[in-house]
Simulated scan of single mutants.
Amino acid sequence: MIKRLPIPAIRLFLLLYPKMKKANSFHWPALGWGVIFLGLIILAIACGEQWRKTDRVTVLQEKFSPGGRYVATAFECAGGGAAGYFYSNVNVRRQEEPFNQRHFILGDKLWSGYGNFDLQWLGSNHLQVTYQGPKDPKWLKQNGSRKEQCCGVKITYVHR
């Protein structure tokens, strides 16, 4: 019989589960799922922005717009440890903004499969991105999205 729980978070947790009929009763199935749920929340909070520190980014090409207002960066990124990831993509941003490897213009996912980039500014706010990527229709349906505009820059694409 538990009269007082030492941690307020556990008390709150016990109040959230209707299977716990009385404050003094103790049901292992409900507590087991609750501990898993609480652990996942703590893990999500603890690992929230770790990728910013652990990603290894290699800049392949970086070009400033003719007026110097925008920057286009082709890059490779690797991280994630043993169950890691590796991807190549392009980032477009204003010159004063810091680079963020998770803001990219090709595809919706990190594992997009693009590469062999060539960046060329056609005007002060018009970027042409030449790239290589799979041509399989199934792959394109899942990963083939492209941003046509980003932070005031019109983007056109040439697939090799």
Rank of each mutant, 00 (worst) to 15 (best):
F64S: 06
T130F: 07
A78W: 06
G79Y: 06
I10R: 01
T73R: 02
V92G: 00
S145L: 10
H103D: 13
D108S: 10
G68L: 09
N125R: 15
E76F: 00
F99H: 03
I2Q: 07
P6F: 09
F117Y: 14
P8G: 03
A44T: 13
F117T: 04
Y87N: 02
L38Y: 14
G144L: 06
Y17H: 05
V129T: 05
N116H: 13
G115P: 04
W139K: 02
A82P: 01
D118W: 12
Q149S: 12
C151Q: 14
T58M: 00
T156Y: 03
L106G: 04
N100I: 13
I7Y: 03
K19C: 00
S145G: 11
V129A: 00
Q142Y: 14
G133L: 05
W139P: 01
Q101I: 04
A44G: 06
G79W: 06
K53H: 07
L12V: 15
T54S: 01
Q128L: 12
R102V: 09
T156N: 02
G133M: 10
Q50T: 14
L5N: 14
A30I: 13
H27L: 09
D108A: 09
V129N: 01
E76V: 11
V153C: 01
C47N: 13
R52C: 00
N125T: 09
V35T: 06
Q128H: 12
Q132R: 09
F37N: 01
E49Y: 11
F64N: 03
L12A: 11
P8D: 07
R11D: 11
L140M: 10
L140Q: 14
R56D: 04
A83R: 12
A82R: 14
I36M: 01
A46K: 11
C151H: 10
G133D: 11
G34T: 05
L38I: 15
G80I: 08
K109R: 10
L140K: 13
P66I: 08
Y114L: 05
L38Q: 08
A74W: 13
A46H: 12
G123E: 15
K154Y: 15
G80V: 06
R4H: 11
I105E: 02
K19F: 11
K63T: 11
